[in-house]
Amino acid sequence: MLSEKSLAAIAHERTKYPAEQARSALLAALRIAQEEQGYLSEALMAYVADLLGLPAIHAYEVATFYTMYDLRPVGRHKLCVCGSVSCFLNGSDAVIKHLSERLGIGLGETTADGLFTLQEVECLGACKDAPMMQVGDHYHENLTPESLDVLLAKLRGGSDDVR
């Protein structure tokens, strides 16, 4: 169900823990699986659990506990706007409103073209550069309507790696 590359990455994760603690690699294995397949389907969670010799329910518990796992398909770019207090004080609601108008979707929704999913998340630990959001691996900070528009244009332009 997973590529050789992902399987090798999971095998590498296991080496970080004592041999009898394969379970420690579960969070990483789920992340690697999700990176490859976009989201964690039921079959994929069960597969990952099996790789590590764990009951499927175990992977399911973990996948539903942590917010970074997606159990449903999401857009190619997940726009995670921080709405916690420091960002809130610096206008995170306006950021969400702006994105929502530009993309024509509400929170938790995905654009029809499958490009964007808009989410409000809790504190991402970049409070001094509020308001901010995370897209993929990157933090985008001190957001303004202008910087948002520039970013959206770049993402629409097909770039995945936008810093």
Partner: peptide
């Protein structure tokens, strides 16, 4: 000796169930 039930979700969404 077999883990069939688990608690999924967290906080007030935590719910007991089986895998699917």
């Amino acid at each position: 000796g077999i883990m069939e039930l688990g608690a999924t979700g967290r906080g007030e969404d935590m719910a007991i169930g089986t895998y699917v």
